[in-house]
Simulated assay, not measured.
Amino acid sequence: MKSLLSVALIASFSLSSAAFAAESSTKKDKKDPDRLICRSEDVLGSRLAKNKRCLTAAQWDEERRAQRTLIDRAQANNYKNN
């Protein structure tokens, strides 16, 4: 019985250390601008259809910046017209 318990404890420690190692390597990868990120986006005019877009982290950041710039310009133009 003690040997079974010992084996179970050793297995749990080895699995937790492997999970920790995998987690620490993904933390380093999260800062990599060339990593690929896939997102599912809704299709306009459809309740069910979705598109999957895969871009690098740098491309997603650039797209977010471009959209934010367009929103800021539209809001600034709206205030000038009123």
Rank of each mutant, 00 (worst) to 15 (best):
N51D: 12
R73T: 04
L55N: 10
R35Q: 12
A21D: 10
A21L: 14
N51P: 02
S40I: 04
L44P: 06
N78F: 03
A8P: 03
A19Y: 05
R35T: 08
E41A: 09
K50I: 03
N81W: 01
K2M: 06
A11E: 14
S46M: 09
A18N: 02
R73N: 07
K50H: 15
L36P: 01
A11M: 11
R73A: 08
M1L: 13
Y79K: 15
L55A: 06
I71W: 07
C38F: 02
T56D: 03
S17R: 12
V43F: 05
D72H: 03
D61H: 02
S14D: 11
V43L: 11
K28C: 07
C38A: 15
I37D: 13
A18P: 00
S17F: 13
A76G: 03
Y79Q: 14
S12H: 10
T69F: 00
R47D: 15
G45Y: 05
T69S: 01
K30G: 01
T26M: 06
S40F: 03
C54L: 13
D29Y: 05
S40E: 13
A66I: 02
A8Y: 11
S46D: 12
A11R: 07
G45N: 04
D72L: 07
A22H: 04
R53I: 15
I10V: 10
A21W: 13
M1V: 13
K27P: 02
T69L: 01
T56R: 09
Y79S: 15
R65N: 00
K31R: 05
E41N: 06
S3W: 14
R65K: 10
A22M: 04
E41S: 08
S17C: 14
R65F: 00
A22V: 02
I71Q: 07
R68N: 01
A8V: 15
R64D: 03
L36E: 12
R65T: 00
D32E: 07
I37A: 07
R64E: 02
S25K: 09
